[in-house]
Amino acid sequence: MRAKQRKRKKWLWGITGGFTLLLLFVGIYGYSLYHNVKQTANRIHEPIKRSTPEKRPEPISLEKREPISILLIGVDERKGDRGRSDSLIVVTVNPNKKSIEMVSIPRDTRTKIAGKGMENKINHAYAFGGVDMTLSSVEQFLDIPIDYYIKVNMESFKDIVDAVGGVTVNNPFAFTYEGVTFPKGEITLDGEKALKYSRMRYADPRGDFGRQDRQKQIIEAIIKKGASFGSLANYDEILAAIGKNLKTNMTFEQMKDIQANYKDARQQIEQLHINGKGTKMNGTDYFIVPEEERLAISNKLKEHLEIHTAS
């Protein structure tokens, strides 16, 4: 039962994480909205121990429009149990290239856990050491700095999709899931249908990779809602949902700087994929990423972040 509940919740982190990105890339209209956004930003602010990323020797300058990276962490936390990170997506934002790149890290990826001196599933880093250890492990795995994080508690997020008036996605193939038929082509989803659209895996020929792409589709769709965000009459409901379910190390001032200097990056969004294969070791399932694949993804992200790579 618990495994089934986790599957139902996995899609939700992307919805709210995407909406937080939307807040970063759209304008803030009117004093009332500005005031409420500021209150929400202060409510969700949760700093981390380190002052700068381990892979970045000097602090990032948002005013100089230096490319940044954001880690979206979807967690299933319960009372008395920190839980694990069920979803990890790295988002790199380059305002100079006017582009965003997103890559999902499969939760079963076997890698070294920072600070533990051992290899394990990357999603276990959160159980061992929370956000700080997760950031360090992802930085170590991809060899890039992670400047900011957005942590989403995967509970009750479908209301956000409904609050923004639904999302529109381009479905690559027709399928039916839990009594709902999703035709091929452009479709508009409310919160309940978005849940089912993002949950489906076994009918997808690409399995979990296909599901990850549908999660990222919804993030992109919510970001594109930014163009009309100022005219939404129920923004207070959206902000209330965000305030209850998100945490981030971004301050309100940083959000404003990103909104002012990075919003053009939403013009082009590219989805990257990490290839590998599943295997069982000592009775545990792992996802093994070949070293050449890890390096290829790392170099692609470094190029987008304008970080020089060794020749």
Score class of each variant (00 low, 15 high):
Lys112Glu: 15
Ile113Glu: 10
Ile113Asn: 11
Ile113Gly: 13
Ile113Ser: 11
Ala114Phe: 07
Ala114Arg: 12
Gly115Met: 07
Gly115Pro: 10
Gly115Thr: 10
Gly115Lys: 05
Gly115Ser: 07
Lys116Trp: 00
Lys116Gly: 00
Gly117Lys: 03
Met118Arg: 13
Met118Thr: 14
Met118Ser: 08
Met118Val: 13
Met118Lys: 15
Met118Ile: 14
Glu119Asn: 14
Glu119Ala: 12
Glu119Pro: 09
Glu119Leu: 09
Glu119His: 12
Glu119Tyr: 14
Lys121Asp: 03
Ile122Pro: 06
Ile122Ser: 05
Ile122Met: 11
Ile122Val: 15
Ile122Gly: 11
Ile122Trp: 08
His124Lys: 05
His124Trp: 03
His124Thr: 12
His124Gly: 01
Ala125Trp: 06
Ala125Gly: 06
Tyr126Thr: 08
Tyr126Trp: 06
Tyr126Val: 02
Ala127Leu: 09
Phe128Trp: 07
Phe128Tyr: 15
Phe128Cys: 04
Phe128Asn: 05
Phe128Ala: 04
Gly129Ser: 06
Gly129Asn: 05
Gly129Tyr: 11
Gly129Leu: 07
Gly130Asp: 08
Val131Thr: 13
Val131Glu: 06
Val131Trp: 02
Asp132Ala: 01
Asp132Arg: 00
Asp132Phe: 00
Met133Asn: 09
Met133Lys: 13
Thr134Tyr: 02
Thr134Arg: 02
Leu135Arg: 05
Leu135Met: 03
Ser136Glu: 14
Ser136Asp: 14
Ser137Cys: 10
Val138Pro: 00
Val138Cys: 00
Val138Phe: 00
Val138Tyr: 00
Gln140Asn: 13
Gln140Ser: 13
Gln140Phe: 03
Leu142Arg: 11
Leu142Ala: 10
Leu142Phe: 12
Asp143Val: 02
Asp143Ala: 10
Ile144Pro: 01
Pro145Leu: 04
Pro145Gln: 01
Pro145Thr: 03
Ile146Ala: 08
Ile146Leu: 14
Ile146Lys: 11
Ile146Trp: 12
Ile146Ser: 11
Asp147Met: 05
Asp147Trp: 07
Asp147Ile: 05
Tyr148Trp: 02
Tyr148Gly: 01
Tyr149Trp: 09
Tyr149His: 08
Tyr149Glu: 11
Tyr149Gly: 11
Ile150His: 02
Ile150Ser: 03
Ile150Val: 15
Lys151Phe: 12
Lys151Ser: 11
Lys151Arg: 15
Lys151Gln: 15
Lys151Tyr: 11
Asn153Cys: 08
Met154Tyr: 13
Glu155Gln: 12
Ser156Trp: 04
Phe157Lys: 07
Lys158Phe: 02
Asp159Ala: 13
Ile160Gly: 04
Ile160Arg: 04
Ile160Ala: 14
Ile160Ser: 12
Val161Thr: 15
Ala163Pro: 04
Ala163Leu: 03
Ala163Gly: 14
Val164Ile: 15
Val164Leu: 03
Val164Ser: 05
Gly165Thr: 08
Gly165His: 05
Gly165Arg: 07
Gly165Cys: 04
Gly165Trp: 07
Gly165Tyr: 10
Gly166Asn: 09
Val167Asp: 08
Val167Thr: 11
Thr168Val: 13
Asn170Pro: 02
Asn170Ile: 11
Asn171Phe: 10
Pro172Ala: 07
Pro172Asn: 06
Phe173Leu: 12
Ala174Phe: 05
Ala174Ile: 03
Ala174Ser: 14
Ala174Leu: 02
Phe175Leu: 08
Phe175Gly: 04
Phe175Asp: 04
Phe175Ser: 02
Phe175Glu: 03
Thr176Lys: 03
Thr176Trp: 00
